[in-house]
């Protein structure tokens, strides 16, 4: 049986205590749902001697607010709480979709929003057991020197594999971080860095406590489309998040982000500019999707080939845009996509 490394398990009762513990224990990590961390630890992807559980922190309401005032979502809210949450059934629907499309029902019961935002970037040279990684010669993300995906690369190309991260960027969300030096609230986009190892600006002692979705004036629609081999279990090998604000049927502003095609959520908002001021029809959407796949640079380190994933980017941007624009879905096998989103 695969086992965790021997470690201490601490259970702070407050966020302040949690940050203090992290600051005073160099070999520590936070654990909430554990669905990303525990498998990674069993594969010895981190050297950790202490886990600091966030599961004894005081429990608040999962979601506070509404679209008019903006929402505050507790980072410890579980994905299965958020997927069907009525507050996410309107303009912020993409977030409900993303939460509902994560892995399996079991993982969604255990996994938290905060944990999903911070999923350790994945790579199929990295998410392997210690002995496998030892056999392949280790990569720079853990125990090794080079990137096995791109051997001459000075950086790590592990893939941002969170479903909620591109949605947070597209929705222009903010996150609140609490650390020993105080509390700060930053745009979701600046939570991430384009590096497979050093992928977040969150400091070691900081806990994400909340995500804030901005107030919506007028109408907003959003959609999240996830590409993966199977309609359950699988991490995204491409995610497309779109959020559009409208003025009487005309696009005021469109934002978008891609997941799983780089080491961070890739903002495609500039490519969506042609939608502004338009009443998007099929042709405009196809044209925008054709161009918006430009920053998608998948590499050969996830399921299926990177050529195909690149090719799918425009297809999925088109599909997500259609949904956000209220056009009927095209043919497509992903009944599971629609079903889970509707839940």
């Amino acid at each position: 049986m695969l086992r965790l490394p021997r470690l201490r398990y601490l259970r702070p009762r407050s966020v302040a205590e949690a940050s203090e513990m992290a600051a005073s224990n160099p070999g520590s990590m936070f654990i909430a749902g554990g669905t990303d961390l525990v498998p990674n630890l069993k594969r010895r992807q981190f050297d950790v001697s202490t886990l600091i559980s966030l599961n004894a922190l005081p429990n608040g309401t999962a979601v506070v607010g509404d679209a008019k005032r903006g929402l505050e979502i507790r980072a410890g809210a579980t994905l299965d709480e958020l997927a069907p949450h009525p507050a996410l059934d309107g303009p912020y629907r993409a977030l409900a979709q993303a939460c509902g499309l994560v892995s399996t029902p079991q993982v969604r019961v255990m996994g938290t929003l905060g944990g999903n935002l911070l999923v350790d970037p994945r790579c199929n040279y990295y998410n392997q057991t210690y002995s496998w990684r030892k056999a392949v010669g280790f990569c720079m993300k853990k125990d090794g020197q080079i990137c096995l995906v791109a051997r001459s690369s000075p950086r790590c190309w592990a893939v941002s594999s969170s479903d909620s991260a591109p949605v947070a960027v597209a929705l222009n969300a903010q996150v609140t971080l609490h650390g020993v030096e105080g509390t700060r609230t930053i745009p979701a986009a600046s939570l991430y860095k384009d590096d497979g190892i050093d992928y977040t600006t969150k400091r070691r002692d900081e806990v994400i406590t909340a995500m804030h979705l901005p107030a919506v004036s007028g109408r907003m629609t959003s959609a999240y489309w996830k590409l993966r081999r199977r309609p359950s279990f699988d991490f995204p090998i491409l995610g497309v998040a779109i959020a559009i604000t409208w003025d009487e049927g005309v696009v005021r502003h469109a934002r978008g982000a891609l997941g799983a095609v780089g080491s961070h959520p890739v903002d495609i908002t500039p490519y969506l500019a042609p939608l502004t001021g338009a009443r998007p029809g099929e042709d405009l959407i196809v044209g925008v999707a054709e161009a918006a796949d430009k920053p998608s640079r998948p590499l050969d380190n996830t399921d299926l080939s990177h050529y195909w994933r690149k090719r799918m980017t425009k297809v999925y941007i088109e599909r997500a845009l259609r949904e956000a624009c209220g056009l009927p879905p095209l043919e497509g096998r992903l009944s599971a996509q629609v079903k889970a989103g509707a839940s």
Binding site: N124, R230, D303
Partner: peptide, 17 residues
């Protein structure tokens, strides 16, 4: 090496399929 010796990456059909 076996590219993905795991239940996650060796794909087998789920109940939904």
């Amino acid at each position: 090496l076996h590219k993905f010796p795991s239940l996650l990456e060796y794909k087998s059909p789920t109940a939904l399929e």
